[in-house]
Computed example of a mutant assay.
Amino acid sequence: MPPKPPSLTLILAATPSLGIGNGGGLPWPQLKKEMGFFARVTKRTSPSTSVDGRRKINAVLMGRKTWESIPPKFRPLKDRLNVVITSKPQAFMDKLDKREDVEGPMVCSSVLDAISQLEGENGEKLAHSNMELEKIFVIGGASIYTTALELPQTKRVLLTKMHKEYECDTFFPVNLEETTIWQNKTREQVQEFTGEEIQEGGIEEQGVKFEFCMYERE
């Protein structure tokens, strides 16, 4: 039997009013440092192989619209198991390139279906491919975040706080600062989980200041 998948970590960037998207894309300019952080954190495993020699890999869970917002040449996202959640999985699969690849996408009907598949058939497939799942990141959109926040498996939120407002039509459902359930972690704790060097007070790029934060469910 493959090991059960780990807890879920939401990863996102948001404006002060919790805006996360506009018109199917990002509301702010393309920020290479923020995008680089996302790529490295969602790819990074530790250590690189498990005790029995299997290579570790992380999964990224996303809704169909988030998948479609990724330029075709960049999907599936490299070096991660891509999991796409859609209410019409068969119709989605019929449109896919049928090549077999550990990066997927694996197609599921819900977040719970994804967890179930990772525990079952697809977890076994990974084991047969000499792979082992380490972390599961939920990368959007808003309805997937909303569902994931209600699940006990969701233990952590990695939030890039934008210090500037932008026009948005999509919003993160919870202000983590205003709940007693979610606790803001220290810079050292963010560094330990992500493996990244986190600059005190945030960083600035293209005139946009932002900082990397982490919240954990108490």
Rank of each mutant, 00 (worst) to 15 (best):
K43D: 14
I11K: 12
S46Q: 09
M35E: 06
E34T: 00
G53M: 10
P27C: 04
L18C: 04
I11H: 13
K32W: 12
K32Q: 09
W67I: 02
I70E: 04
D52H: 07
K56E: 07
T45H: 12
G25R: 15
T45Q: 06
T9Y: 03
G19A: 01
N22E: 11
N58V: 02
R55L: 05
T66W: 04
I57D: 08
N82M: 04
G63C: 01
S7E: 15
V41D: 04
R54N: 12
L10A: 10
S46K: 14
G19T: 11
A14S: 13
N58E: 02
A13R: 08
D52R: 13
L18S: 04
R40I: 03
D52K: 03
V60Q: 04
L61C: 07
G21C: 03
D52V: 11
K73T: 05
G53A: 04
G24W: 07
K65V: 08
A59D: 06
P71D: 04
S46I: 10
K32F: 07
V60K: 11
N82A: 09
S48Y: 07
T66N: 11
K65S: 11
S7D: 15
S17C: 06
G21H: 11
T45I: 14
N22W: 15
K73W: 04
A14K: 08
K33M: 08
L18D: 03
K43I: 10
M35C: 00
G25K: 14
S46W: 13
A13W: 14
V41Y: 01
T49A: 02
W28Y: 08
T66R: 04
S50C: 14
P72L: 02
P29M: 09
S50R: 11
K33W: 00
A13D: 13
P71H: 01
N22F: 15
K78Y: 00
L77G: 06
R64A: 04
L81Q: 01
S48P: 15
W28C: 08
R40K: 15
S69F: 13
V41A: 04
K56R: 15
T9K: 13
V83Y: 06
K56D: 02
A39W: 14
K33R: 14
P29L: 08
M62G: 05
